[in-house]
Design a protein around this nucleic acid. Structure first.
Length: 805
RNA sequence: GCGGGUAUGGUGGAAUUGGCAGACACGUCGGUCUUAGAAGCCGAUGCCGCGAGGCGUGAAGGUUCAAGUCCUUUUACCCGCACCA
């Protein structure tokens, strides 16, 4: 019987032999398997972690047995709010909280038997690690990709921090689900938009699941259109708009700008209803992003009394409106409104009785009724009411207008992105300090590389200030410093880096985790190159996965790393749901603790069950009975000892079965189809149990292919059967294809598509021979009943279908 | 609104990509062993029907000798994005 003593015995052996250590000076082929390193929360290891890690665990153990030098590292992404909030609540220093949590995680991970390289553990909060996070920041600054800017940022009033766009999707805080508000603040930004095209192009050279690719493309959101300069009527100023439909410019009946648009402030003396506009702006900023979207059907706005806009192509003068359906953060914060062909403009125009001009007709050139809404189904439409572009297709008209704009210097073609620059600041203590000081004379000055790491001061009060002020701001002795350039008085940046900083490059540190002279040596970077397979969750696709690709591509551009993309292949695991089918959560009380399963059933039971639960990429509910089934299977493996014999008994059937299961499991592991791999091994065990005695040669390869899933059980039985050395050192078994095919096979015969009888045929029979056997079968007579055979379809070694009429 | 996914026995899930639907496992039932129970081992188990047979992959159509798989329409649930100009 399998028990947890077996776990302990072999975990001790692995630890003593340090047998999963990867070396940097190997002449073996390398394989780099990566899992998303965990955040060491107080809640400890979750069954979701186990599922996420098991995929790469199985692959790593298999590749080692195949003779590869496997890097399968683990570390901790330990900066972040929960630890800090816990510190605030209890008064325990975040350093201590983090160390305790890491110790717990380490113990738990080891108890599951993961084959991590424990010599390469990294911790993002270790100054020797964040030294290099700060170094990369200095490089970004040096190349103009880190800048300080006063803009509207997402602020979570509950967490009291600024959030990046990626962290506030849906207008809700990633951490606490609070409604975020817009706040004008000067913060550090990273110019990720400069890398938008590179991030899109990079997707062509990696193997990501289509879902992941789509989400990233969607998030980056590139669109092609034009920027057009409209002149304010009788004024010098221009109003620049971005549009993807320059071909509809003759349909513009009004212009609209965001409430935050600077033009309003500039012309406040000439705008007659400025008070009304100010009031509208105040209301708009008060609305959360969520409300703005919810109320999207009911458009609001104020007409700007005193300003009008001149259409530079048609020469028409149209009114200017302020409305919160135009966002300051996208495009130029101003639009040319074409109500006939845009649903939002249509709704607005309907409500405020603004004219509509139809400028695109259907493909037959007929005007369409605008009674029921804007006509947007215009891909194959024809331009009308539009002077020199009349009669053209939409596509041609776009090109012609853009050329006209450029010739007349009133606009140009323009790419736009949904993705915004990365608000790279947290007003918190537990994060990487920004290695920049503000000097009265020299402005923003970077620290010298030799002065890194800039460590966090030891403080006792971690409570953030009321208005988005970091707790570091209270530490005068730390804040006040001297300028590295002029030696005069200077102040340190008191915002820290966001959660995502440390994880944006950690996979590079694993290659050479103790290096003090570089983030990793050139030799290490050139040997390991990039991650061969990276498994993680869908929730990181538009956060960590985008950020780390951005940093990596930047490091490539400045010659630090040898590859453009960090991850060659990305895979994702599905969620493990509670036994009730709901997402596991403390409040629902349906959380399964992996520790309990390991204690009661053993680590291999947990490992086997989690892989057997279903398709690796899909979510599946937890089942205690399923766990018991996995345990039963492992006990059956252990009991093979009683069946095993040293005698050399060869059986054709077992030859076929063993070669088949080696082939099937080897292939399934590569495809991450762990559930069917385990099912195949179960079937094989069922066959073995039908024998009175089984030669060890039929058990040995089974243990080897099961080893990546159940390393403790297989190591134990390997020893008991005296198979020599350790199983983890043994060579992955090969199979003989010729033994898998049998001489004679049975195939079904259908009459009019329904299986009626079966025939035995020599495996190599061709279509004619099979047809002959099928038609000669006595069973056919029962179905013919005077009918005539119209057609016989034979699919070699698969099926026969006889069509009777 | 846009994009992506899922739907198969009492349950979790398989199905070589158009070729035997339900592998494997759970559960249930039966057998064996046992003084007895548990465990183990062996067997049965999609539904209806005594049976021959019929029906069956969310629903409705279609293509095909053959459809879980392809096409059209549709429903439910999940995920991502969302006034993207």
């Amino acid at each position: 019987m399998y028990n947890k003593e077996i776990d302990k015995k072999w975990q001790k052996v692995w630890e003593e032999k340090n047998c999963f250590h990867a070396t940097n000076d190997s002449d073996k082929e390398k394989f780099y398997a990566l899992i998303e390193f965990p955040y060491p929360s107080g809640a400890g290891l979750h069954v979701g972690h186990v599922r996420a890690f098991m995929g790469m665990e199985v692959l790593s153990r298999k590749k080692r047995m195949e003779g590869k030098n496997v890097l399968f590292p683990i570390g901790f992404d330990a900066f972040g709010l929960p630890t800090e909030n816990y510190a605030i609540k209890t008064g325990i220093h975040p350093r201590v909280v983090t160390d305790n949590n890491i110790a717990t995680f380490t113990k738990q991970l080891k108890s599951v038997g993961f084959s991590f390289d424990w010599d390469r553990v990294i911790d993002t909060t270790d100054p020797n690690y964040y030294k290099w996070t700060q170094w990369i920041f200095l490089k970004l600054f040096e190349h103009g990709l880190a800048y300080k800017d006063k803009t509207y940022v997402n602020y979570c009033p509950n967490c009291r921090v600024i959030l990046a766009n990626e962290e506030s999707q849906g207008g809700v805080c990633d951490r606490c689900d609070s409604q975020i508000v817009q706040m004008e603040k000067e913060v550090w930004m990273l110019k990720i938009t400069d890398y938008a095209d590179k991030l899109l192009e990079g997707l062509d050279e990696v193997n990501f699941p289509p879902r992941v690719r789509h989400e990233q493309e969607n998030w980056i959101g590139r669109s092609y259109g034009a920027e057009i300069n409209f002149k304010l009527n009788n004024k010098e100023d221009i109003l620049t708009v971005y549009t993807t439909r320059p071909d509809t410019i003759f349909g513009v009946t009004y212009m609209a700008i965001a409430p935050e648009h600077p033009l309003l402030e500039k012309y406040k003396d000439e705008i007659k209803n400025y008070d009304e506009i100010l009031k509208y702006k105040a209301e708009a900023t008060k609305k959360s992003e969520f409300e703005r979207v919810e109320l999207s059907k009911n458009k609001t706005g104020v007409k700007v009394d005193g300003l009008e806009v001149l259409n530079p192509v048609s020469g028409k003068v149209v009114p200017l409106w302020v409305t919160d359906y135009v966002m300051m953060g996208y495009g130029t914060g101003a639009i040319m409104a074409v109500p006939a062909h845009d649903t939002r403009d249509y709704d607005f125009a309907k409500k405020f009785n603004i004219d509509m001009i139809q400028v695109v007709a259907n493909s037959k050139g007929e005007e369409v009724s605008l009674e029921d809404g804007a006509y947007t189904d215009i891909e194959d439409g024809v331009i009308i009411n539009s002077d020199f572009i009349n009669g053209m297709s939409v596509e041609d008209a776009k090109a012609k207008i853009i050329k006209y704009l450029e010739d007349n210097k009133i606009g140009h073609s323009k790419k736009n992105y949904h993705m915004k620059d990365w608000a790279f600041a947290r007003q918190r203590y537990w994060g990487e300090p920004v290695p920049i000081v503000k000097c009265e004379k020299c402005g923003l000055v970077p620290l010298d590389e030799k002065d890194l790491p800039l460590t966090l001061p030891d403080v006792e009060d971690f409570v953030p200030g009321e208005d988005g002020e970091s707790p570091l701001a209270k530490v005068d002795s730390w804040v006040n410093t001297t300028c590295p350039k002029c030696g005069g008085p200077a102040k340190r940046e008191t915002d820290t880096m966001p959660q995502w900083a440390g994880s944006s490059w950690y996979f590079l540190r694993y290659m050479d985790p103790k290096n003090n002279d570089a983030l990793a040596s050139k030799e290490a970077l050139n040997y390991w190159k990039s991650v061969d397979c990276y498994n993680g969750g869908m929730e990181h696709v538009t956060r960590h996965l985008i950020y780390s690709r951005f940093w990596h591509r930047f490091l490539y551009d400045i010659g630090v790393v040898p590859t453009k993309e960090p991850y060659n292949k990305r895979t994702t695991q599905g969620l493990i749901l509670g036994p009730d089918g709901d997402k596991m959560s403390k409040s629902k009380g349906n959380v399964v603790n992996p520790d309990d399963i390991v204690k009661q059933y053993g680590a291999d039971t947990l490992r086997t069950y989690i892989l057997f639960i279903g398709d690796y990429g899909m979510s599946a509910p937890w089942s205690e009975n399923g766990v018991k089934g996995a345990k039963k299977f492992l006990d059956r493996i252990m009991r093979l000892e009683a069946l095993a014999t040293d005698e050399d008994i060869t059986s054709k059937e077992l030859d076929r079965e063993v070669n088949f299961v080696i082939k099937k499991v080897s292939q399934d592991y590569e495809d991450m189809k762990y559930n069917t791999a385990i099912a195949a091994m179960m079937s094989y065990v069922n066959v073995l149990y039908k024998q009175n005695k089984v030669s060890k040669k039929y058990i040995k390869p089974l243990l080897q292919i099961l080893n990546p899933v159940a390393p403790h059980v297989t190591e134990e039985l390997w020893e008991k059967l005296n198979l020599g050395g350790y199983i983890f050192e043994s060579k992955w078994p090969t199979y003989d294809e010729s033994k898998i095919v049998s001489d004679e096979i049975e195939i079904p015969v259908q009459i009019n598509g329904t299986v009626r009888y079966r025939i035995n045929i020599p495996a190599q029979s061709d279509e004619k021979e099979i047809e002959k056997i099928a038609l000669e079968a006595p069973a056919l007579k029962n179905y013919i009943a005077g009918k005539e055979i119209k057609k016989v379809i034979v699919i070699k070694s698969k099926i026969v279908n006889i069509v009777l009429g």
